[in-house]
């Protein structure tokens, strides 16, 4: 067989590269495209490819949460905000400032620094076996035992964000 040398992990790697290229391309479009509306739609594509990466790394629950919460919630919120402010963010107005070159400089410096740290870290990657019963079972157990305090605090934060957002945008009677 001509494909006999292709094992499962090579196929996984190929799929990962595919979605990585999609994620990087759509992220680049998010930060460079002229209209913010299109940027928000490319952000949805980016989040979808990140969800696909989560599925590749066996984190299926996280991928579903990503799709539900990010694409279903955050993107809709951002689209609402873009549409509500569309009068001042038309295509004709410049959406980027004049700091392109310094920003590129900062990014390349950070890239060199972090890549140097990564390559000298000597991290060894090896695949750990999947937990029995899948990862989702493990997540539920961890959230209800060790991480129960952060879990409750997160719910309080969400409540605060809900009330805060309502207070901030709610119409005041004048």
């Amino acid at each position: 067989m001509i494909f006999s040398f292709i094992n499962g992990q090579l196929i996984t790697y190929g799929f990962f590269l595919l979605f990585a290229v999609a994620a990087i391309a759509s992220a680049l479009l998010v930060v460079t495209v002229k209209s913010v509306m299109h940027g928000a739609l490319f952000l949805a594509a980016f989040l979808l490819s990140v969800a696909a990466m989560f599925f590749i790394f066996d984190a299926d629950f996280l991928g579903i949460v990503q799709i539900l919460l990010y694409i279903g919630g955050v993107i809709v919120l951002i689209l609402f905000a873009v549409m509500l402010t569309s009068r001042v963010s038309s295509r004709l107005i410049q959406q980027t400032n004049e700091q392109k070159f310094p920003a590129l400089l900062v990014c390349s410096f950070l890239f060199c620094l972090l890549a140097y740290v990564l390559l000298t870290s000597g991290l060894k990657g090896f695949e750990r076996p999947l937990a029995e019963g899948g990862i989702t079972k493990d997540i539920g157990r961890l959230l209800m035992t060790i991480y129960v305090l952060p879990f409750e605090v997160a719910s309080l934060v969400l409540l605060g964000a809900l009330i805060g957002a309502m207070v901030l945008v709610g119409k005041k009677d004048e």
Binding site: I24, A27, V31, Q95, T96, Q99, A103, V106, C107, L110
Partner: peptide, 9 residues
């Protein structure tokens, strides 16, 4: 890319 976007948008 995110850092670049924060700096230039």
């Amino acid at each position: 890319i995110g850092v670049y976007g924060v700096l230039t948008r």
